[in-house]
Design a protein around this nucleic acid. Structure first.
Lengths: 209, 209
DNA sequence: GCGTGTGAACTCATTCACAGCT
DNA sequence: AGCTGTGAATGAGTTCACACGC
C-alpha cells in the first residue's frame, strides 16, 4: 500500500502520537513542534519526524505540525477515521467480560457485535445489551454481522479451534489472548497479547538486574 | 548481569520456547532438536540456537537439547524457577478483577498479595480471598507485603499518581494497562500493555492491506 | 552424518547531521 | 533563526553458512 515498508514500531508510535495530540488541553493552539510532541510522548523528535515522513510531509518549516491536520492524518493512516470495524469476542470469562465493557473499543470505532461461549449456563444471557451466542453458531452469526475482528479469550485448549472457526467466518484479523500460538491462513492478521510472557519478561529483568 | 546485551525479543522468545517445552506430550523423550522446537513454536531453528547461545551451551551435538535440562535452564534465566514475586493490583474494575483471578500469575510464581481501589463501595470487600484496601494505604501495605510488582488497572487520569505511590513503596517493576505513558525513576522497570494500540495496529493493517 | 554454536553478512531500525524552506 | 524532511552513519537484530563435536 505505501511506497516503503513501514516498521512495526513506527505504527505503534503513531498511536502514541495520536494519543498525546488528543490529550492536548489548549484548544486554540494551532501548531506543535516535533520537539514538544517528543517531550510529551517520551520519544525523540528526530524519531517522530522520521516516522511521519514515511507517510507524507505534514509539517511546516518554522512552525511545526498543524495539530488538527496531524490528528486527522494519523487517524487516516491508522484507519480509525471513518470506518468502523465489527468485533466478536469468543470466551465470556473474566477477561472476555472485561473486554466487553472496555470503552476504548467503541471510542476507536470498534463495535462489539457478538459474544460467544460454549458454557450453556452463559449462552442466552446478556452482557452490556449483547446476547451471548453458542459458539456452535459462530460462523453464521459472524457472517451475518460482518465481523472483521475476532477476539479470542478462551483457554489454550480451545484457542486453535476457535481461530479456525473465525477463519471459516472470513474474519480479517484476530486478537489472541490465549497463551498459545495459533495457526491461520496467511491472509488473516494475528496479534497476540500474552500476559504470561509479559510477566516473564518482568521476571527476567528482576532476576537479572 | 550477562556478558552481552540480550535483545528484548530474545527474552520474549525464551518464554515461547518454555511454553512449547512444557506442552510436549511425550514424557519419555529426552532430546529435542532446534528444528523441531522451531516447527512447534513457529520460529526458525537458527534463531533458537542463537537465542540460547547468549546464555550458554545447552545442546549436545547429534542429539539436540535435553528437554528437562533446557526447561530448567530457561526457567532459571527467566527467573521463574525458585523465586516467587509479590504482586499488587491497583484498580479493581473489570480488568483488575479479571487479572485477580488470572491463573497464569500463580503458575509462574507471581503471588497477588494485595488489591487496591479508591471507591468506598469496593474498599473492604474481597475478591478471591483478597481484601480490597483503600489506595490511601498503598505505601504501608505494599511495604509490609514486600510487593515487587505493581499492576496498574486504573483510569488514565489516575495512572501517574498511582505509579508514584508504587515508586514510594519501593516496587521494582510496574505492569501498566492504562493507555498512557507513566514516568518513574529509572530503577523501576515499566511494561505497558495497551489495548488501544493493539486495536489501532490491527486497524492500520486492515485499512492498508 | 547430524545438529549445535557462532563469527560474518545482511537486513531492518534508530540516530545523526544538515540542507532547505519560510 | 527555527523547524521540517531526509540522506548517511550507526547500531541492533536476524539470517547465513560452516567449523566443530559426537
Amino acid at each position: 500500500m505505501f511506497k516503503k515498508h513501514i516498521p512495526q514500531s513506527t505504527v505503534y508510535r503513531l498511536s502514541i502520537y495520536l494519543r498525546e495530540l488528543e490529550r492536548l488541553e489548549d484548544r486554540d493552539r494551532v501548531y506543535i513542534s516535533s520537539r514538544e510532541l517528543g517531550n510529551r510522548s517520551g520519544i525523540g523528535d528526530d524519531q517522530i519526524r522520521k516516522d511521519l515522513s514515511y507517510f507524507g510531509k505534514f509539517g511546516k518549516s518554522r512552525f511545526g505540525y498543524p495539530i488538527k491536520g496531524l490528528k486527522r492524518n494519523i487517524r487516516q493512516i491508522l484507519g480509525v477515521n471513518n470506518k468502523t470495524w465489527h468485533v466478536a469476542i469468543i470466551g465470556v470469562g473474566n477477561l472476555g467480560t472485561a473486554l466487553s465493557s472496555y470503552k476504548g473499543f467503541r471510542e476507536r470505532g470498534f463495535l462489539i457485535k457478538a459474544l460467544f461461549d460454549n458454557d450453556s449456563k452463559k449462552i442466552g444471557r446478556s452482557v452490556k445489551d449483547l446476547k451471548i451466542y453458542d459458539v456452535k453458531h459462530l460462523i453464521p452469526v459472524c457472517k451475518k454481522e460482518e465481523i472483521d475482528i475476532g477476539v479470542i479469550t478462551v483457554s489454550v485448549y480451545h484457542a486453535q479451534k476457535v481461530a479456525e472457526l473465525l477463519a471459516g467466518a472470513d474474519v480479517k484479523a484476530v486478537l489472541n489472548f490465549a497463551p498459545t500460538r495459533i495457526n491461520l491462513p496467511h491472509r488473516i492478521k494475528i496479534r497476540n497479547v500474552d500476559l504470561t510472557i509479559e510477566l516473564e519478561n518482568i521476571s527476567f529483568y528482576l532476576a537479572n538486574q
